[in-house]
Computed example of a mutant assay.
Amino acid sequence: MFAMMESARLEALHLAQDPVTGLRAIIAIHSSRLGPALGGCRYLAYADTDSAVRDAIQLARGMSYKAALAGLAQGGGKAVIIRPAHVDNRGALFEAFGRMIESLGGAYITAVDSGTSSADMDCIAQHTRHVTSTTAAGDPSPHTAMGVYAGIRSTALVRFGSADLDGLRVAVQGLGHVGFALAEQLAAAGVELLVSDLDAGRVQLAVEQLGARAVAPEALLGSPCDILAPCGLGGVLDAQTVAGLQCAAVAGAANNQLATGEIADELDARGILYAPDYVINSGGLIYVALQHRGEGLPAITAHLAQIGLRLNELYAHAQAEKCSPARVADRLAERLLYGT
């Protein structure tokens, strides 16, 4: 475990359990150099504890990089609650998690993520103020989608010479809160939509409301398109899937899209432009961070507008250096975090 922490340059790893509620939680704090660690809480089933710990560590690192490049005075953290096979009282479980967060004295601020909701954050808020994306604070998903949409336009400008998306074919993998909101914006821009999700109901909704074409989940990554937008869970791009891609660019909302860092180089070698995930999907983090600090919507909207500009900057550096934008983004984030 310490080897994993050292490899990721993780500051702290906190584990807690509560037999009464079934809580088994992990909080990974990657960095607090720029401010208190902020990151969502996942509530998912895991094959084993090691898998949950690895997920929390990897995601916390990504949050540090995301906050740094977004210009936020926040560090990066992530929480994982291992979802039990059966839970008697979900509210009580999240209240117990709230007490865990409070015990850290403000070192970590939580928010919604995969498997959690604003209602869960409301339960946490009964025991700590170090929580955002509650019912009162609002859902960050639309803001994530707004940032990804802006990033797709920047990506199209670099790859196709125009930010006008009308007529482009975009494949959206995953129609959760962010993926569906993104699909709505793309459809309004005249995009030809290909969509997939494990939830057939979400796919049908996109077909009926947005005019999307449904594609089987196992076939979407290899479908011919202009831009692929992964918007589900991470790790979808590995050596095998990259070899089968038929797109000109990858720009989506999912965290940790690359199975390994080397995959960025494989995309670059194939001439596929990659929008670093923690840059293009930073809209949700921007929203929860600024909202938690009491900033109003105009300030948040102005900050969201910087996502496309940041991507343009990364693409220009990558082109000049003849390397992947992901490599450039990592170097810039590490310079801000470590001064290297």
Rank of each mutant, 00 (worst) to 15 (best):
F2W: 02
A3N: 02
S7H: 12
A16R: 09
A16H: 06
T21M: 13
A25W: 10
S31Q: 11
S31R: 14
S32E: 15
S32V: 14
S32T: 15
L34W: 08
R42P: 03
Y46D: 06
Y46V: 05
T49Y: 13
M63W: 01
M63P: 00
A68S: 15
L69E: 07
A70C: 07
A70H: 01
G71E: 11
Q74G: 00
V80E: 09
I81E: 09
H86W: 08
R90F: 13
I101F: 09
I101S: 05
E102W: 02
E102Y: 03
I109N: 09
T110N: 09
G115W: 05
T116V: 03
S118P: 02
H127S: 14
H127R: 15
T134Q: 13
P140H: 03
A145D: 07
A145T: 05
M146T: 13
G147M: 04
A156K: 04
G161P: 04
A163E: 14
D164P: 02
G167N: 05
V170R: 08
A171T: 11
V172H: 11
L175I: 07
V178P: 04
F180C: 01
A181V: 01
Q185S: 14
A188M: 06
V191D: 08
E192V: 11
E192D: 12
L194R: 11
D197M: 06
A200R: 11
R202P: 03
L205S: 11
V207C: 15
V207M: 12
L210G: 06
E218F: 08
E218P: 09
L221P: 11
L228W: 13
C231S: 13
G232K: 00
G232L: 02
V236C: 15
V236A: 07
D238E: 03
Q240D: 14
A243W: 06
A253E: 04
N255I: 08
N256D: 08
I263A: 11
A264M: 03
L267Q: 04
G271M: 12
Y274I: 10
A275R: 09
Y278W: 07
S282R: 09
G283H: 01
L285A: 08
L285H: 05
L285C: 07
A289G: 06
E295A: 15
L297S: 12
T301R: 06
H303M: 10
A305M: 01
Q306Y: 00
L314G: 11
Y315W: 11
H317R: 12
V328Y: 03
R331V: 04
